[in-house]
């Protein structure tokens, strides 16, 4: 009971930060909008994929991207919390590390899901119309994706000592996860090497599941997408709790 309240307090803190640091929200929505309307709109004026306008085709990929970026970054912000010493207050409190991790994960998922909902709400602007059911399916997929990626970010953040490593995370983790996910291209006609990597990128299954939910095209059956995402989330979450237990 006490731990549940503590988790709520941790979540509440993250939520307050999210609502007060408006710039974080605006920035994280702005980039995906550029992708959809400038990149997607520009290429979409001449390019169709599988009979679908390119802008529409990449829309689910970009929604997944916004969740990917915000989730991983959220986790890495813990380095700043450590740097400015506010993490210490939590770490010396009589809380189990498991609770600390759960509170942080919930905080990060909340941030990402608020963004995801905003991104889903603008679907009509690209000509995608979501039924309530497909909206809920999209939310489920994005939640699983964000759960695993927030955990991933927190693991990295708890292992890294300085914010200087932040750029490395972007270059060597976030961008590869994005570019190999097939967010910007179909998976069915790729060269062998690229195809192999996309299959190993968990974000691929998020993008693919979202395509099923929003525009009705996909590479894998939905249950495969969901199963891969669920396993990925479970693995990262478990690893995260273990890492937090060992964190100093």
């Amino acid at each position: 009971m006490r731990q549940a309240e503590a988790v709520y307090a941790l979540w509440f803190r993250e939520f307050k930060v999210f609502t007060r640091e408006r710039s974080r929200i605006v920035t994280s929505i702005f980039t995906p909008l550029l992708w959809i309307f400038v990149f997607g709109g520009g290429l979409g004026s001449t390019v169709n994929i599988e009979g679908i306008n390119y802008q529409v085709y990449i829309y689910p990929g970009i929604v997944a991207m916004s969740v990917l970026f915000s989730s991983v970054f959220y986790g890495v912000y813990i380095i700043w919390d450590r740097k400015i010493d506010i993490l210490k207050e939590v770490l010396v409190a009589p809380l189990s590390r498991y609770s600390v991790f759960v509170g942080k994960v919930l905080g990060g998922c909340t941030d990402s899901m608020i963004q995801a909902i905003v991104m889903l709400l603008i679907s009509f602007a690209v000509g995608v119309y979501l039924s309530p059911l497909s909206f809920l399916l999209a939310i489920l997929i994005l939640f699983l994706l964000s759960l695993s990626l927030v955990s991933t970010g927190l693991i990295i953040g708890s292992l890294m000592e300085s914010p200087e490593g932040f750029n490395m995370v972007v270059s060597f983790l976030v961008f590869p996860l994005f570019f190999f996910s097939g967010a910007l291209y179909p998976l069915n006609n790729l060269p062998m090497w690229l195809s192999a990597i996309t299959y190993m990128d968990p974000v691929t299954y998020g993008v693919d599941g979202l395509r099923t939910a929003t525009i009705g095209v996909s590479q894998f059956p939905l249950h495969i997408d969901l199963a891969v995402l669920a396993v990925f989330a479970a693995v990262m979450f478990t690893m995260g709790t273990k890492t937090f237990e060992r964190m100093k």
Binding site: E5, R13, V17, I86, E89, V90, A93, L95
Partner: peptide
């Protein structure tokens, strides 16, 4: 180690919940 982005009272409320 007080949290900048929260109010003084909020810092105390969170602490009370953690403890």
């Amino acid at each position: 180690s007080v949290d900048d982005i929260l109010t003084g009272r909020e810092n105390l409320v969170l602490h009370a919940m953690w403890y």
